Computed example of a mutant assay.
Amino acid sequence: MPPPLAAGMGFKPAHMEEALHCASPGLWFEVHPENYMADGGPRPAMLEALAECHPLSLHGVSLSLAAAAPPDAGHLHRLRRLVDRVKPALVSEHLAWSAWGGQYLPDLLPFPRTQEALARVAANVLRSQDALGCRISIENPAHYLVLDGHDWSETDFLSELVRRTGCGLLLDVNNVHVSAHNTGVDALAYLDAFPLHAVTEIHLAGHGVDEDFPATLLVDSHDAPVDEAVWGLYRHVLSRGGPRPTLIERDGNLPSFDVLLQECARAGDLLETKGMAA
């Protein structure tokens, strides 16, 4: 039986050599599968080599689960082939939409959490799980404005989605902090209502500040170290729900591998004090 996942980081090709030779206990790597869903070439070969050394997680950004149409069948087919090749420990997607009526947008967009939306998202999650042959986990979004027209709170919506589909949840703690700041939600109250029993993975990341808005807006930019406020929320999550595989996300202003490994070690220390989950 493989050892449990501890703290991991988003994989970047620039760190390939360090990643292959790193022996940090419990280390794992996450990628956006869209960057590796080719039939051949250097990127799939790189990912397969990494999978020989470390557990992987596939974190998709393109299924558009909250859209009116089902996820693209061709995309699901290519993703299934990648799942079969690298056998990831975790597969996840976002509670968002990015395609509608044949239009594709390079963003993860919000929606009113209505009864109809819940039925739509649940159906798309079930289709995706059936096509991929595995359970997927759904990430809570980052919010930049207050939307009207909700029938469900976000935490209740996610709880019901888990009940209807058997999916897991990916708790992005930075998204909680960013959303709480931008929309006036109480971050601790949100986490206390979150269905932690269904969480299979936690994300930690840094954020930026957009000062062009009348009120300072936090942006989920993944281009800075994890903020101390996010570390505090993470400790709260662990105290309530116990340890879960935890990822350090960094997509911009990429530091050295060793710097990211230090953030992984900080998360790993907190996980160890709570005892590793089986």
Rank of each mutant, 00 (worst) to 15 (best):
N182C: 11
A7P: 15
P110G: 06
A69R: 12
A69E: 15
K87A: 14
L105A: 04
V209Y: 12
D251N: 10
L132Y: 06
V226A: 00
A277P: 13
E272Q: 14
D39I: 06
L90I: 14
H15L: 10
V121R: 04
E34A: 03
Y36P: 01
H177N: 13
P243C: 08
L171H: 12
G102N: 04
Y190M: 14
D212L: 11
S179L: 12
V121F: 02
W231R: 04
S57F: 08
G232M: 05
F194G: 05
N124R: 06
A99E: 13
T200L: 07
H94F: 03
M1H: 15
V259E: 13
L217H: 09
L233Y: 05
L58F: 11
H236R: 15
L82Q: 01
A73L: 04
A49G: 04
H181P: 11
H177M: 12
S137E: 08
E93D: 15
D72W: 01
D148K: 12
V31S: 00
L5N: 12
D192Q: 12
T200Y: 02
L56E: 10
C264I: 10
G208K: 03
F157K: 10
M16R: 15
K87D: 10
L126E: 13
T165R: 05
E52S: 13
D148S: 14
A267D: 11
L79M: 09
A7W: 13
R164W: 07
L233N: 06
G166W: 07
G206K: 08
Q262R: 14
